[in-house]
Nucleic acid binder design. Structure first.
Length: 403
RNA sequence: GGGUAGAUGGCAGAGCGGUCAAAUGCACCAGACUGUAAAUCUGGCCUCUCACGAGUACGGGGGUUCGAAUCCCUCUCUACCCA
């Protein structure tokens, strides 16, 4: 049942960015195989917002691989660290959250993470568990384990220092807290994005201080977002969320730059490198559809992927309407003689943010409705609204329900 | 503790008493072209209004003025220099 060391090592290091150190991982794997004791693989996530996105799944997928090989996933929910805010990869400081927000977010995260990792088999540990009782003497000891110089060496801080962006003292606490988590749970491996390297290395040091065998710092590449440039992030609006509908996930994927496909295939699907080469050698458009379908299949199942692909063809290749159309309910009371002025209708349907934008879009000829794709004469032209009417604005399409 | 310079729309960054809902760039939305890619061209990008127009908005508060993003006071925050 247990796979041999070399095989495990080969599977695990695929797609990895950097390991500190690869030899240590091999040794730990060998020991695990010999003793039958699974490795404890840590991954921490701070409950700072609601949407878990594809960027998070890169290390999470790796975590699942560890699980599949029989190792123990230890998910740290950063209930304590979320109050500090991770300075990694930030060029400004984060705002601390209230305990209530943190609890709500934590619950939501777990359900979302469950789509990638087997949460039922994982050890889930909020780090408030130990930090809640952390006394001042322990804090002093923790702070005494690192020098200011080393803290300032880290990339994020040195950049902010140079650009005169504030660095708050409590932010320096973050890596130490994360490192201490590793001591608490006796981690063998800690997963993270490459921007986590500093934090992961701190964990190694603290473990050494605590006379533990240091964890392997295992970093995965950072996934770039829809723009193809910046890191996928919740604050950048360039992400695909795990909780989004198949249509949204697929649509967003279709809009990524072609050059991003290899990265996404590699980090987000289980396709083999040779297979990816073959796919990318073909038509880019076909490759991208496949990528989108792969992603949708992972979070909504194969049937949803087939459906969304079919719908895409209907809407954009044939020029018809998809089978699955999002719906919006408009109060029947808004109708005057069974109709609503075009601009207002767009706003009510949520296709535009304001009546003014609705007017502009009508003027631009971006709006049409119904089976014959009629366009209103102008933005105040009354559009007869019946239950089930289809509205189209650009690539958006929505079905109106009267309520 | 003392001094200096700053705080403008999602971001960057002009404006420095009326002609400012605020140049320009990026981002974003739509149209043409297309593969919901790239490139290119066009239009748009605070809210309400058919429109005239009105209301909000240039860190918070107060003041001067017929009139302030622009001047003064004060508060908050930031950077830099000195201690």
């Amino acid at each position: 049942m247990v796979r041999p060391v070399e095989e495990q090592f080969a599977i695990l290091t695929r797609g990895a960015a950097q390991l500190e150190t690869a030899d240590e991982l091999k040794r730990k794997l060998a020991k695990s195989v010999a003793t039958g004791v699974p490795l404890r693989v840590k991954y921490g996530i701070d409950p700072t917002g609601f949407d878990v996105h594809l960027g998070h799944t890169v290390p999470l997928r790796k975590l699942r691989q560890f699980q599949e090989l029989g190792h123990t996933a230890v998910l740290i929910i950063g209930t304590a660290t979320a109050q500090v805010g991770d300075p990694s990869g930030r060029d400004d400081s984060r705002v601390g959250l209230t305990p209530e927000q943190i609890d709500a977010n934590a619950a939501s995260y777990l359900t979302q993470i469950a789509k990638v990792v087997d949460v039922t088999k994982a050890e889930v540990r909020p780090n408030g568990e130990w930090f809640r009782h952390f006394d001042f003497a322990s804090m002093l000891k923790l702070l005494g384990s690192m020098t200011m110089q080393r803290m300032l060496e880290r990339d994020d801080f040195s950049k902010r220092l140079k650009s005169n962006t504030p660095i708050y003292l409590h932010e320096c606490l973050y890596p130490l807290m994360q490192g201490h988590d590793s001591v608490e749970i006796r981690a063998d491996v800690e997963l993270g994005g490459t921007e986590q390297l500093f934090n992961l290395m701190v964990g190694r040091n603290l473990q050494r201080d605590a006379k533990q065998e240091p964890q392997v710092a295992f970093t995965m590449p950072i996934l770039r977002g829809l723009d193809g440039e910046k890191k996928m992030g919740k604050s950048l609006a360039n992400y695909v969320g795990l909780a989004e509908t198949p249509r949204e996930q697929f649509g967003k994927t279709m809009r990524i730059p072609d050059g991003l496909m290899r990265e996404w295939f590699t980090l987000l699907t289980s396709r083999e490198p040779g297979e990816i080469d073959a796919i990318l050698a073909g038509k880019p458009n076909e490759a991208k559809k496949l990528l989108g379908a792969d992603i949708v299949a992972g979070y909504h199942g194969p049937a949803a992927a087939t459906q969304v692909l079919d719908d895409w063809r209907k809407q954009f290749e044939v020029g018809g309407d998809p089978d699955v159309i999002p719906e919006v309910t408009i109060p029947a009371g808004e109708l005057v003689d069974g109709a609503i002025p075009a601009a207002k209708l767009l706003a009510l349907a949520g296709l535009v943010k304001s009546n003014g934008e609705g007017r502009r879009k009508c003027d631009e000829g971006a709006f049409n409705f119904g089976p014959d794709r009629a366009k209103p004469a102008d933005f105040k032209a009354a559009v007869t609204v019946t239950d089930g009417l289809i509205l189209r604005l650009g690539r958006a399409i929505i079905r109106v329900r009267l309520g």
